[in-house]
């Protein structure tokens, strides 16, 4: 199991908590909880060993610009493909701004 912590700059605190997905084969669960302004902290537990670089690249694309809401994000990944990861993250961020 791979465990990874990522930190990004962020804007104002997220407005609500969000949960999407499930820790099922080929899928993942994403939890978002509001955090103090300016901070986006992401914890990833992944069943895919050696996936750290892939996670970093994928999350950098979404959060490196510091425009996202301040949040504590938790990802529990049971071997999701990059496509499923993108889909779940998009779904989570969409629900966050809903």
């Amino acid at each position: 199991m791979e465990k990874l912590h990522l930190h990004y700059p962020a804007g104002a605190p997220a407005a609500q908590a969000v949960l999407v997905g499930v820790v099922a084969s080929g899928d993942l669960e994403v939890l978002i909880a509001p955090a103090a302004a300016g901070s986006c902290h992401i914890v990833i537990h992944s069943a895919a060993d050696g996936s750290a670089a892939r996670w970093r690249a994928q999350l950098d694309r979404l959060f490196a610009d510091g425009q996202a809401a301040a949040m504590q994000m938790e990802i529990n990944d049971f071997g999701a493909t990059p496509g499923v990861v993108s889909l779940r993250l998009a779904q989570a961020l969409e629900e966050l701004s809903a």
Binding site: M1, V23, H45, E74, N76, F78
Partner: peptide, 18 residues
């Protein structure tokens, strides 16, 4: 969001669900 993860699965290197 209470994050009541299984303490036994994580001890065995298995990804848990919140």
């Amino acid at each position: 969001f209470e994050r009541l993860y299984s303490p036994w699965l994580s001890a065995q290197g298995i990804v848990t669900q919140a």
